Simulated scan of single mutants.
Amino acid sequence: MGEEEVNAPLAIVEVLDRDGQVRHAQRVPSWPLSIGRALDNELSLGDPYLAPHHCVIELDANGLGLRVLDSANGVQIAGARHLRAGEREALADGEHAVEISAGRTRLRLRRPGDALAPELPLAASATLLRRGAPVLAAGAGLALALAFETWLASDPDVFLRTLGTTALTTVMGAAVWIGLWALLSKLFTRQTHAGWHLRVFLFSSLAWMVVGALPGVIAFALSWPWVSDFGFIAGYAIGAAALYYHLLGVEPSRPRLMRGVAVTAFVLGTALTLWKQEQRNERLGAELYLSSFQPPALRLARPVPADRFAAELAALQPLLDKKAKEENATENGASDDE
C-alpha cells in the first residue's frame, strides 16, 4: 500500500453556497465525523440554526449512516427525508454525492465511489455557432412572427413605419425585462446569467405567439369554439413555464420551490380569469364568437345544414328574452330612481 493510498481521505464534506458553489471542503480521514456549532466537532459551523452537537456521520456494523443528535431542527437528506433527533439514515454507496441540509447550511458528502459529473466546457472552448445557433433561430422566428402579425394588422402604406415601431418597442421591452432578471441573478448568485434569461425570453415569447394564434385556427377549422374560448389557459401555461425558468436563473438550488411558485401563479391566474369572465359575461369562455375569420381553405368541419342551424338558433330565444327583460327591468329601475 503506497503513501498516497494511506493519506487518501475516506470522504469529503463540502459546504455549499445558496447557488451550489463550494465554500469550504472538509477532508474526512476517519469516521465518525461530528457536525455542529461546538468547537470540539470535526466540522464546526457558525450556523445559528445548528445545535452545538447537531449530527454525526458514523460507520458501524450496518455501514455508513447519519444520526441526528440533540437537535430541534433535525436534518434533511437529499431534499426528501427529514430526520428528527435520535433518528438514523443509512448512507448507502451510490452513483452520486449525498446532499444534506442541516439548519441553514447545505452540505454535500462525496465518497470515492461517487460518480463525477462531466467537465463543463468554458465559454471560449465552445464554438460560437454551437452556442448561438438556438438563440439566433429563436430570435429570427420571433422577428418573422412579429413582422407577419404587423403585416396582417396594418395598412400597406404604413406597414414599414408600424414594423419599425413594433421592433423598437419589442427590443426595448426585452432589454428591460432581461436586465431586471439578470440583476436579480447577480444579487442572489453573483452571476448575471444574461444568456440564460435571453433564451428564456426568446423561446417563451415565440411559444406565446404560437399558442395565441393556434386556438382560433383550430376552432375555425374543426368548429370547436371551446378551443378559442379557453385558449388563454395555454398562454398562461407558457407564462408559468417562463417564470419557472427565469426563477431557476435566480435561485438554481431550489427547483422544487421555484416550480411551486410557477404552478401557483398559473393556477391563480387561470382561476381569477375564469371568475372575472363569469362575473362579466356569465360564462367561463373568453369569446362569444370568433373574433377573426381564417382562410376558408383551413376549414375541415362539414357545413351545418340550414334547418339545423335555425333550430340551434331557436334554442337561444328563451335566453335572449330573459336577458332583454333583465335589461329592461334595470333601465326602468334607473328611471324610477331619477
Rank of each mutant, 00 (worst) to 15 (best):
W177R: 09
L136S: 05
F203Q: 04
V210F: 06
P215C: 10
P121E: 08
G212C: 00
Q191I: 02
A213I: 05
A137Y: 05
V200A: 06
K186V: 02
L136E: 03
L206E: 03
F159Q: 10
F230T: 00
L128N: 03
S185W: 05
G139P: 10
I218W: 02
R190N: 02
V158T: 14
G195D: 15
V176K: 12
R131A: 09
L222H: 11
T162C: 13
A194F: 09
L128P: 04
A145L: 12
P225H: 12
T165F: 12
S223R: 11
P118W: 13
S205W: 00
S228P: 07
L152I: 14
A207L: 10
L183C: 09
V210W: 07
L146Y: 09
T166G: 01
E149N: 13
L184H: 02
S205N: 11
L136Y: 04
V227R: 06
A175P: 08
L187T: 13
V171G: 06
L136A: 15
A219F: 01
W226M: 11
V158N: 13
P225Q: 11
K186I: 00
V176D: 04
D229H: 07
L146K: 04
T165Y: 06
G216P: 03
A123N: 12
F220M: 10
L163D: 03
A182L: 02
L214G: 11
T170W: 06
F203W: 05
T166P: 01
T165I: 12
V135H: 10
P134R: 07
T169A: 15
A207G: 08
K186C: 10
G132Y: 09
L206G: 00
W177D: 02
A123Q: 10
A175S: 14
A175M: 14
T150K: 00
E149W: 08
P134T: 02
L168S: 06
T127S: 13
V200R: 11
L222C: 08
L222S: 11
P225G: 01
